[in-house]
């Protein structure tokens, strides 16, 4: 796992041969690009202008409403309560996987998710904060990924896929060149199949890579993104960040390094789709400066 140093170049990225460069056997066309069956996915974007005030403080009433709308749309259930009942079972041990670095997940969002999960019948003592090493995820039977939307200076984007890096037990193995392999962490036996929902905190994203938070690149987007395909959700996140960067500079300002881990999660690890053409984006609420 992550032992072989990946060597992916700019040319691989432009040719669509990232998977081949990693050296994982997949079907490729004559040019080396990966071929696979279509993977349709649905991503929900909910925004509310009232979600943050002028000092960026969270309006918890609006946030709870947004979260319910998101869960309903993702699951197709008629109400928020039904939606959460369909996502978790009373016998589950539910891990909430928030981010605590760079652009931390808002605690109000974590609380809102916890409340919804408990209301769906999971005893409060079986809902735990599950960010950490393998021991944090091992007892969990269900995970709700709760990353915050942000760019990252080593991986291009550091939102959904990077959120589980500590589950590898050796995060440093995924630094530097091997961050392209972040998708394989989602395939570990202690992780695979447990993620019931991805909810991205896009209330106040960070669109440049840092490596430390720079307030010039944070803005009040006042949104939540959600879905069950982590790669599709990450792909929409990428689009928002890319568009924001271009808007800030008035010229193309691509993420660098490019988000190779997203392409690889699709083409190499089969976690979901990174192809915009396969993603249905369901937009709800405030539309101003939505960027997607």
């Amino acid at each position: 796992m992550g032992k072989r140093q990946a060597n992916v170049t700019r040319r691989d990225f432009m040719r669509g041969t990232v998977g081949a460069a990693i050296g994982v056997s997949m079907a490729h066309d004559r040019a080396g690009a990966t071929t696979r069956a279509p993977r349709p996915a649905r991503v929900v974007l909910v925004r509310d202008e009232q979600a943050l005030d002028a000092r960026h403080a969270v309006n918890t009433v609006a946030l709870t409403r947004m979260l319910g709308e998101l869960a309903t749309r993702v699951t197709g259930e008629p109400t928020a309560a039904d939606a959460w009942h369909s996502l978790v079972r009373p016998e589950d041990v539910v891990g909430l996987v928030a981010t605590d670095h760079l652009n931390p997940t808002h605690p109000e969002l974590i609380d809102a998710v916890r409340t919804a999960v408990v209301a769906a019948g999971v005893p409060a003592q079986r809902v735990r904060m599950a960010q950490g090493g393998p021991d944090a995820v091992r007892p969990c039977t269900a995970l709700i990924a709760l990353p915050a939307l942000k760019a990252h200076w080593l991986t291009g984007i550091g939102t959904v896929l990077k959120n589980y890096i500590t589950y590898s037990g050796a995060p440093s193995k995924y630094h530097d060149a091997n961050n392209v392999k972040l998708g394989e962490i989602w395939q570990l036996p202690i992780v695979k199949g447990k993620t019931r929902l991805v909810v991205v905190d896009a209330l106040r994203p960070l669109c440049d890579k840092g490596p430390q938070p720079d307030p010039r690149y944070m803005w009040d987007y006042r949104g939540l993104l959600g879905g069950t395909d982590p790669v599709a959700v990450e792909t929409v996140c990428l689009r928002i960040i890319t568009e924001k960067r271009q808007a800030l500079r008035g010229e193309p300002w691509p993420l660098s390094p490019p988000p190779l881990c997203v392409t690889a999660a699709d083409e190499t690890y089969g976690l979901g789709t990174s192809r915009w053409s396969e993603i249905t984006l369901d937009r709800v609420g405030w539309t101003q400066d939505a960027l997607v």
Binding site: A6, T9, R10, W153, L154, N178, S256, P258
Partner: peptide, 15 residues
């Protein structure tokens, strides 16, 4: 090369 890649991505290895 990490800084270089954050400005202009050439490759994951230190080319």
């Amino acid at each position: 090369h990490l800084v270089l890649n954050s400005i202009y991505f050439l490759g994951t290895a230190n080319l």
